[in-house]
Every structure is written in C-alpha cells, then in structure tokens.
Write a protein that binds this DNA or RNA. Structure first.
Lengths: 248, 248
DNA sequence: TAGTGGTCTAGACCACTCC
DNA sequence: GAGTGGTCTAGACCACTAA
C-alpha cells in the first residue's frame, strides 16, 4: 500500500531517517510481509521506494542485522533471519558428553494440564492472572540420562491445537511444533540465570542428591512484535554448567 | 612518526581500509599514545592524516566504540574509554541490601604471599607454570557482612610495588591501586560463571551453611594489548544472584 | 553477464559544546 | 562563532553469486 515512491512522513520529534526506516522494516517483519528465511528487496529498490539514499538504507539494515532480525549475504541478498536458540544459556550446559559434537536432548512430557495462569507467572509474562493456560512438565535426557527438568506455561487461546496432539508425539523440540500447529513463531527471548539447592523431588527426577547445586534458567519467549508467547523454568545440574562472558 | 599525510600501506591480502585503520587506532591506544580519558584527534584530522575520507574514519571509530575502547560525544570529541567494570557479572549479585543504590563492598585482605604460579592457573593465564607470583586472599563485605571470597593471582614482575605497601592499606578497589603503583591498566576481562556446593571453610568465611549453593566467577583481566595481568576466582551466595540476558 | 551486497569518496547541512 | 560529531546524499568501483 505504501509502495513505489512514497516519501517518508516527517515525524514531529527529531528522528533520524535511518531510524524511521528501521521501524518500518521491523513492522514488515512482525506482520509477516517479510517472512523468515525469505529474501527482502535489494538495497537499491528500498532506496528508490522510500526516496532515500542507499547509505541510509544500509544503515537501517545494519542495525537490524546487528539486532539479529536480518542476515546479509554478499552477492545474494538480505534475508529475514529465523531466531537461533544456539545462543541460549542452555548451550553452556556440557551436554555433549564424551565427544564434542552437540546433541539435541530427547524429551519426555511428564504432565500436560489445563490450568489458570498463576499470578507470579502471569506477572512475568505481562498477561492477566487467571488466564486459561496450558502447563507442561518436561524432562530432557541425553543417552537416557535426565539432564534438564522444565515447567512450561502457554496461553491457551494461542495454543489450543497442541491439545489435539498426543504429548508423546510432541517430539524433541517445541518451537517447530508451535510454528507448525499453532502458526506461532518465536523471535526472541529473555533469560535469567540463578542457582539453588535441589529439593528432594527435583533431585530425584534429575538423578542427583538432595541439596546439590542446580542452575535455574527462566525464559520468556516473544514473537517478532514482542508479544509474550511462552514462559519456562529449566533446572539442571550446576556441575555441568560453565558460562563465559567478555567484559569491557 | 607516521604523521601528517602518510598513505596507508596496502596489505597483501584483501583488507578493508577501515579495518586497517581500526588496527592502527588500537595500537595507538595499547601503546598509550592515546591515553584513557583523553581526547583523540577529530575525524577530519584523522581523515587528512591517513588520506582517507571521513566516512571511512567514522566506520573505523564506530567499531572501536562498539568494542568499548572509544567513546564519542557530539560537539565535544572522541575519547579513549576507561574500562567499566559495571558490566561485570558481579553486578548481578544483589549487593544493594535494603535501598536500591549500588555500594562498593569493603575489602579485607586475609592473606598475601609470594608463591609460584600453580600449573592450572598458569594455563588459564597463558603464562609459564612456576612463574613467581603474588597470591592474595580477600574477603569483601557489605555492612560488615561477608559477601564475596576471592583468591587473586598476579605475576610478580609486574606488581612488585604492591609488596611495599601494607595490605591493610590496599583500599576497597584493586584496579586503581594497580594503575597508581604499578602503572598497569586493566582494559578488559573474560569471566566464567559456574556454581558449586560450599565447602566447610568457604561456608564459614561467608557465614553460610556447608553445602549451600555458591556462584563461582573466574576472571582473567587483560591489558589493552591483551597481555594477561590478573586472574581471580570469586565465590558468593547463589541466592543473592540473578543474571539476565537477551537471546536472539 | 546481470544483480547483489561491500567498500569508499567528497562533499553538504545539522545539532551540540564550549568559549 | 569555531569546532566537534551526527546525518545524509549520489554517486563509483569491487567481490561475490547464480543463471
């Protein structure tokens, strides 16, 4: 609708052109006009369409590349990036037992039930407490050794299709499942790391001694438009965890 | 020596001009030709001096600003940034007891001794094992409550001046001390986070129960030229720790 | 060979800081 | 008012990809 030669409207406050452009591109991504893994128009096309110079388009795209929403390939084009959860804190658990290669843990759903969103979790998600929700409890294993215990909360109205599937058939990864059956794409997440001593039931499920140090990772997963989609808390053995960071 | 109008030598391999410029500026910083908190030449001066366009200088400076080595202020100039250890993992300990404001913990040196670098630590520092070193054990407190227990290793030849000072007079922060007495500036650091159950002596010093969850942070601190200067391991109570990160 | 992103130029004008 | 960084332009040429 706003195509082929529309001059950007000037904003009341002072806002750089490239910044306004970035916003426009973000909207196109969140509204799936530009879809994950698809190519977007070339820099010259975008410059003409928005009546700005290529340098300005490049600066807008630069910031989206840095932000992880786009990906550029010289000679090919610019693509909408699918979120990579390789960068999750989970990767700092040494799951690769024995040889080095990464391995997706297998999943066992221990419980699936309908439940109203508890106030504490509703507040973390920014959703109304008491909202109908789906609660999953899931154990993740490597070579049949339990390694992570997870409790997951999903707002029911976005995920009803999950209830029609036998939890034994959910498979090892949930996000592709969300996308396939519920049309819901996870675009980013916020994670929080803490540690605690294992309670007896947690220790038992993970095959540890009561009181052992556990790493606890809370994750709030969001859509491209930052709507909250999933909240989960994961617990794993602290002695399998090392996290590195660079300080400047 | 390479001033006023020297054309950049072309490298054999294909390397962008702005990348070569960034390297040159990094060297000036690490060799203290440009010093912390001092202003560097303006963009136009740098462009003339290196016979490139302003845009290219800007791109080189951009990457150093992103990397945390420089800081720009519109209308004032560009400055060499002093490392900010606000971004250390330590800030995720909730040290601000009671009201919100941050507070530098006070320090008590429990031990200072000359000792050869143990192999494990030498290997982490990338220095030869057995190198003469200074080992400090330090307790950090808020309102007289012990909150962090640290063991610190320094290569002796760079820090001999520390031996002439009474450890009771080291003060609450070591890095300013290093700079003042040893002429050594910490520019960056790598940190690693793990967790463990407290041993009895550690628990006792920190006022915790044996077996309580501890967060362990290892830090390797480097000079601007990435020479290793200090290694430390810090332990604190896990229930006072929350770390947040954004995943994309 | 056509089309893409990557680098680089040589300016212009603006907003801000400081004297 | 002089000097700084911040934004923006309208090109040029290059390296890479794919048909």
């Amino acid at each position: 609708m706003n195509k082929s030669g529309s001059k950007l409207e000037t904003k009341n406050i002072r806002q750089p052109l490239y910044d306004r452009l970035r916003e426009i591109f973000e909207i196109k991504i969140s509204q799936r006009e530009w879809r994950p893994e698809e190519i977007i128009p070339s820099e010259t096309e975008l410059a003409k369409a928005h009546r700005v110079s290529i340098g300005t388009v490049r600066k807008a795209i630069d910031s989206l590349v840095t932000g992880g929403l786009l990906e550029r390939f010289q000679g090919k084009g610019t693509y909408v990036r699918r979120a990579q959860f390789n960068s999750s804190l989970f990767r700092f658990f040494r799951f690769h037992r024995e040889e080095g290669s990464y391995q997706v843990p297998s999943s066992r759903i221990l419980k699936r039930e309908l439940s109203d969103l508890p106030p504490a979790i509703a507040s973390e998600m920014g959703l109304p407490p008491g909202l109908p929700a789906i609660n999953l409890i899931r154990l993740r294993l490597i070579n049949n050794n339990p390694i992570l215990l997870e409790t997951i909360w999903l707002p029911k109205h976005k995920f009803t299709q999950l209830l029609d599937i036998n939890p034994q058939e959910y498979g090892d990864l949930l996000y592709p499942l969300y996308e396939k059956y519920c049309g819901v794409v996870i675009a980013s997440a916020q994670e929080t790391l803490t540690a605690e001593n294992a309670t007896e039931p947690h220790a038992q499920l993970l095959g540890l001694k009561t009181g052992a140090s556990l790493i606890v990772i809370d994750r709030l997963a969001l859509a491209y438009d930052r709507e909250p989609l999933e909240w989960r808390r994961s617990r794993g053995p602290a002695d399998q965890f090392r996290y590195n960071v660079e300080i400047r």
